[in-house]
Amino acid sequence: MQILKNKFIRFCADVLILAALFTLVQYFITTGLLNQYYQINLASMCINIILSVSLSLINGFTGQLSLGHAGFMAVGAYASVILTQMLGQPFIAGIFAACLAAGVCGFIIGVPTLRLKGDYLAIATLAFGEIIRVTLQNIDYVNGPAGVLGITKLTTWPWLFAAAVITTLVVVNLINSSYGRAIISVREDEVASELMGINTTKYKVIAFVIGAMFAGLAGAMYAHFFYIIKPETFNFLKSFDILVMVVLGGLGSTSGAIIAAIFITALTAALQSFPAIRMILYALILIIVMIYRPQGLMGNKELSRQTFGRIWSGRKNEHNRN
């Protein structure tokens, strides 16, 4: 009973914190304190969070190196745009279509390729991502390489916030469920988990499809915020960008993925003022962080209430000792 009560209190606290965060930002936007520049970067941040959290489910928790995440994002972006712009459906239908289309693609790609291991899987997913891009380039219905221009801006802060929160919640809850334990066991030792009676292929595919669905969601958000989508945006370099966030945050850490997504977006924005050397600095930061912290910012730890609590109590103890 006590445990249940504690859980309930924690749940309420979480809801309150999120609601406060949402309202605060919404307040800043309506009052104009957060100008367009910050709003754009905020949107990038949320989209990057969705991408990196969903990829961290595949790469970090399931241990399957995928380099085709941008491909799923492309599928989602195009599916939603076809629905909202060409068929005149509401945004919510576009979002569902995006998740569905990306999920189906994830399934079709995942079932055969997830038998592959390590670098072979990486190159196969990379190849699939590129195939998606080349195919889109040759579809005249969506204007081929020119892409779709003039997409109505439907992605607003409430949508972005909800999408990021739902993605995180689904991934975190999945990891903490029995499915999640099976998924992590696949990462730790595939043969051993198979011997324990876990259908490893099934769990790999589940993680892959869910990851792909959220990449599709990110694609839908992206398309309806940035006015234009074209196949070139979703090339393999975009997949690398997402992978960088996941690894920088720490494989197997959702909070790490979120922190890294925020960090990378802010870093990109901050480096805008140095056009000549921005990419050099970016590359150097990447190398230096990896050399000094190869397990990523968070390792496989999570930043949670307990961590804050521990840091807090640790500080207090030190204080007492002094």
Partner: peptide, 18 residues
């Protein structure tokens, strides 16, 4: 400013320039 050859960055850069 550099827009990295991508549309989203071009938007962000424009907003910064504004």
């Amino acid at each position: 400013r550099d827009c990295k050859s991508v549309a989203d960055e071009a938007m962000s850069v424009s907003a910064a320039l504004v």
